[in-house]
Each structure stands twice: as C-alpha cells, then as structure tokens.
Nucleic acid binder design. Sequence first.
DNA 1: CCGCCAAATGCAATTTAATTGCATTAATAT
DNA 2: ATATTAATGCAATTAAATTGCATTTGGCGG
Lengths: 160, 160
Amino acid sequence: MPPSHPPANSSLESALQTLRDHQARVTEPRRAILTILTSEHGPFTVEEIYQRIEKGVCDLVTVYRSLAAMEEINLVRRCDFGDGAYRYEFNTGDHHHHHIICRTCRSVKTLDFCVADSLERMARQLGYENVTHTLEIFGVCVNCQKKAARAGGPNPAVPG
Amino acid sequence: MPPSHPPANSSLESALQTLRDHQARVTEPRRAILTILTSEHGPFTVEEIYQRIEKGVCDLVTVYRSLAAMEEINLVRRCDFGDGAYRYEFNTGDHHHHHIICRTCRSVKTLDFCVADSLERMARQLGYENVTHTLEIFGVCVNCQKKAARAGGPNPAVPG
DNA sequence: CCGCCAAATGCAATTTAATTGCATTAATAT
DNA sequence: ATATTAATGCAATTAAATTGCATTTGGCGG
Ligand SMILES: [Mn+2]
Ligand SMILES: [Mn+2]
Ligand SMILES: [Zn+2]
Ligand SMILES: [Zn+2]
C-alpha cells in the first residue's frame, strides 16, 4: 500500500498555490481566511470572516486587505446584497452561480446556474469589453414567514 | 379649435399625483427631483440629482430623504452599481429593465427586457415570498476602449 | 382668507463600512 | 544567514448615508 498523502482540504491547497502563482505571499491571516472560505460557502461579510478567525491572529484591516488582494487574482468573489456590507465567497472559477437572499434573515440559497449569459453576449455585441454581471434574487424565506406569522406584525422593509 | 390643455410633462404630473395618493406632500424639492428624474433616464447618484437642482432650492439631506420616501411608494427605483453610491431612476412601473454600465466612465445603456423572471419563479417555488431581483451588466464601453488605446496604458480595475 | 398641525426641511452631528499612512514585521529568494 | 519588499498593526481618515432637533411649510378646516 502506497503512503497516503494527506488529503486535507484540496481547494485550500490549490488556493494557496494560486497565491504563490501570483507572487503573493502565503501568510497566516490569508491561510485562516481561505480555510474559512473553502470550508463554508458563505458568502460572508468581512466582519463575519474576522470573527471566525482565532482571536489575535490578525487585525480586521488585514482581512479587508487580504480579501481585496484575493479578489484581484480571482481567488474570491465579492457579493453585494445591497445592505451596506460587502460579502465574499470562495471563487470556484468554473461554476458560475447566483443566490437567493432572505431580505429578513440574510440566509442564502445557492442557484447553481446562470441566466445572464445571453445578456453578456448582447453587451459584447454592443461593443463592450471585459463584460461581467451581478445578479441576486431577494425574497422572504419560509422560516421568516413563519416567524412573522407568529409575531402577527408585518415584516420590515429591506432593500432588494 | 379646442383650447389646448398644457401637455407639459405628463409623467411628472402623474408622479405628483402618486405623492398625493399616498398622503405625501408635494413640495418644491420633490417637484424639482421628479422633474429631473422624469426628463432624463439616469439613474443618478443623490449628489448628481442635488447638483442638477437650482442652487438654494434645498439641502442635500432633503434629496436623500425625498428619494427614500419616493422609493417606499415605488415612485423611484434604487440601483446599485457597486461603486459605493446608490443611484435612483424614475420607476416606470410596468416596464422592468436593466442596464449595461461602463466600469470606466459609468455611462449607462438601457436593456428594455429582463431574463430573470424564470429565477423569480423558481424562488417562489422554493417558498420565498415578496421576490425581487437585481441584475446589472458591467463592461468597458467603446469610447473608453478608444481612450485607453490612445493613452496606451492599461485601464484601472473597478468593481463589476 | 386665516390659522392650525403634522409633514417636511435645514443644519449640525453622527454613524459605519471601508480606506489610507506609516512604522514594523515577516515571507521568500539568493 | 541576509537582503528584499510584501504584508501587517494601529491609528487616523474618508465619504455615503443617517439621525436629532428646531424651524418651516403644505394642505386642510373653518
Ligand atoms: Mn455563492
Ligand atoms: Mn434604468
Ligand atoms: Zn429568512
Ligand atoms: Zn465608458
């Protein structure tokens, strides 16, 4: 039987390699951030990521800067749920997807496909280059509907 | 020949009526804001709207508050281009549409249709209520490509 | 036409996510 | 091991947006 290499978190390992490939250094804060993002889908606010990192490992501003650096090399993707705080998720690269966000509890459901390809094609036909898009679905999830029903009151207005 | 009623800006008039219908008062700042939004598509940042209003008519915070009030009654729509400043446009109501935004000069092209209906349907089937969505296309417009070519340098990275 | 009153406004202070400056630390190449 | 310089910590700062409160004003009843 051949010696079993540590399987561990392979997306983490390839993420760290991506850092090296871009002449970016593999530091403890970056390792911590990527460990979180490769093990839970998220997306998470910067604050949420910071709170999940063992206390004392790094400063909040390092999380900001690390995520910004990672976004530039497409290691992570920044999401905007329109509530004043950006969120980040690990970028699987190949598999483009979108989200349904509960505008009450901010829970997220993933939709593993995209309907905007036709729009991107159209934009390129109009002469645009470097075309991307953002697409988010908002609603009130079943859980929050139940809670609202119990409380009897109407639910507060939130962007979306 | 029958006396010609003033044709003027009919969407402005109906917008003002919408205010009245919601027990909201028709004030000079609101009239000014709606005059702008019903005559140019936009969308415009709060600052841009403020600058288009004749100086001295109102304070910037009034533009913020007016737009917030108008959004609650669906008179205007808030757009998020991911660059840190919300934008507002007049809500035609019936005709849902989207935008292609140049990530260099922020110019906007309107797409008069929507491909996200199927996603909204899916969200409702998953039990979500009050479903909406945001969808924006980003790219670099032809103008900015020419400018970049003339300048010879690469263009700066911007969200999208 | 006048006066009332809640809604809307002006101005200043505040909030808060995000960014920046700069001295220090530490990851990587040689 | 040493040099290089990217990355970090801490504090200050930015800027869009919000809030508090005194004042003004639009719309209504008389
Ligand atoms: Mn996701
Ligand atoms: Mn539009
Ligand atoms: Zn929910
Ligand atoms: Zn452009």
